[in-house]
Design a protein around this nucleic acid. Sequence first.
DNA 1: TCAAAAGTGTTAAGTTTACACCCATGA
DNA 2: TCATGGGTGTAAACTTAACACTTTTGA
Lengths: 238, 238
Amino acid sequence: MDKNKTSIKRGEIPAHYARHPQMFVGVDSVIFGFNGKDLYLLIVKRAYPPRKGAWTLMGGFVRNGEDLDAAAQRTLEDLTGLENVYIKQVGAFGKADRDSGARVISVAYYALIDVKDYDANFSGKYGARWVKIDEIPPLVFDHREIVDRAREIMRNDARNSDAAFNLLPKMFTLTKLNKLFEAILGKPIDKRNFRKKVAELKYIKPTGKIDQTDSKRGAMLYTFDKKIYDRSNMSKLL
Amino acid sequence: MDKNKTSIKRGEIPAHYARHPQMFVGVDSVIFGFNGKDLYLLIVKRAYPPRKGAWTLMGGFVRNGEDLDAAAQRTLEDLTGLENVYIKQVGAFGKADRDSGARVISVAYYALIDVKDYDANFSGKYGARWVKIDEIPPLVFDHREIVDRAREIMRNDARNSDAAFNLLPKMFTLTKLNKLFEAILGKPIDKRNFRKKVAELKYIKPTGKIDQTDSKRGAMLYTFDKKIYDRSNMSKLL
DNA sequence: TCAAAAGTGTTAAGTTTACACCCATGA
DNA sequence: TCATGGGTGTAAACTTAACACTTTTGA
C-alpha cells in the first residue's frame, strides 16, 4: 500500500511511537429502527462489569488489523444478524474518564434498519430491546450523549441524502414515508405539501401495487430508485 | 463521577477489557487560516520516520488521563502558541494500515484562525507553512482525506454557526466578510445580496470606525456580537 | 352507515437570484 | 483625472406554508 516504508521492519514499532501510551479502542452503534409508525432505538444489557446489566449501546472492541468501519459492521452483524446495514460514523468520544473500567476511546456509528428485518434475525442473546426514541432509559457512561449526536447527524442526513430509505421496506406507502420523516425530524409535516414534493422526485416511483394493511381503501406502494437518485445528485454538481 | 464502580479497583483493568488489543491514539489538526483574501491550510514537516520530512497535518498522541479534545488543543497550542482557538472534531480515521509505522487511530479536528494571529506567534520549529487551500501538496498517509472531510464540515458550519468569525479579526469590513464566505464555500457571492442579508442580522454591527488599508475611500468596520448571536439562536428553538 | 386512511389544489408570504451604476479618495 | 474599492435598489423566479374536503371500502 505505502511504498515509503523507510527503515521500519514488519512488526517493529518505531521509537517515536513507542514512547506514547496505547489505549483500548471501542466501537458503539446507535441502531435506529422504524416500524412504519415510530422511531426506535435498539439497546442491550451490558454483559460485564463495570455497570453489568445496565442499558448500553451495542458495542465491541476494535481488533488488530481491523479497520474501524469493519469493526462497527462486525459488532452490528453480531447483534442483528444483518450484513448490509447502512452505517455512518458519528464521531469519536474520548473523555479520559468516560468509561469507568479503563481508558477507552469509543468511535460511534449510527445504523438504520427496518424493525421488521431485525425481528426475523433477532437472537436475543444480548438482552436487546427496542425502545421508542422519546422513551430511552438511562444509559451507561456517555451513551446518551452519543445517541443525541447520532440523531442530530441522522436528521441532517435524512434531508441531504438517501439514508432514510434504509429504514423502510423496499415498497412503502407515502403515508409511511411521511410518518418516517416526521419521526426523524420530530415535527409534523403537511401531507399535501409532502406529496406534492414527492411527486416531483423521479426516484420515488409508484409500483402500481396496492397495500391494504393500513386501510380498507388501499394505498399505492412506492419504491426508491437508487440509480436515479445518484444520477440526479451527480447533476447537482455540474 | 461514576457512582457505580462495582468491583473495579483503581488502576486495575477488568478482565473483559484486558483481552482486547490496545492502540496508539493520535490527534491531527486541520488548521485553516484566512488573510482577508484567501483561505489557507497550515502544514508541517513530519519530524520522525516513517515518511520523515513529508508534509503532514500537525498532530500528536493522546496522553493517559487526557481528554481527546484537550489533546487536540494541546498539540495546536504547541504549534501556533494560540490558546483559545476554535476547534471542532472532524471524526475518527482508523483504517488498519493508514499509518505505515504502527496501528494508530487518528481523531481529526479542524481549527480556524486569523493568519495574522498566527504570524505573531509562529515559532517555526516544526517547519510549518501556509499553503493556499487549492494548492495543497501531497500529504502523508490519509491526511488529504482528512482535510477534505474537514472542509466539508467547515462549509456546513459556516452556514449554520458562527464558526467563520474565528477566521477574522475583531473588526472587519463587509468586503472581507464577503470574501471569507466565498473562500469557504468556493463560489462567488453577490455583493449586494450579501450586504442586504447582513444588514438584517442584528449581531453584525457597524462600529463607526473606518478602515482605509484597502481603499482610499475607506470602508466601515463591523464587529460580531456573540451575545446577540447566541440569543437569536436560542429563540429559533422556541 | 360510519370510521379510518387515501388522495387531491390554490393562494399568500417569504426567499433567492440576477443585475449596473454612482461615490469618495489618494496617487 | 482616473483607478480602486465602497456602497446602494428593484423586479422576476422560485420555494414554502397554510389550509379542508371528497373518496373508498370493510366492519
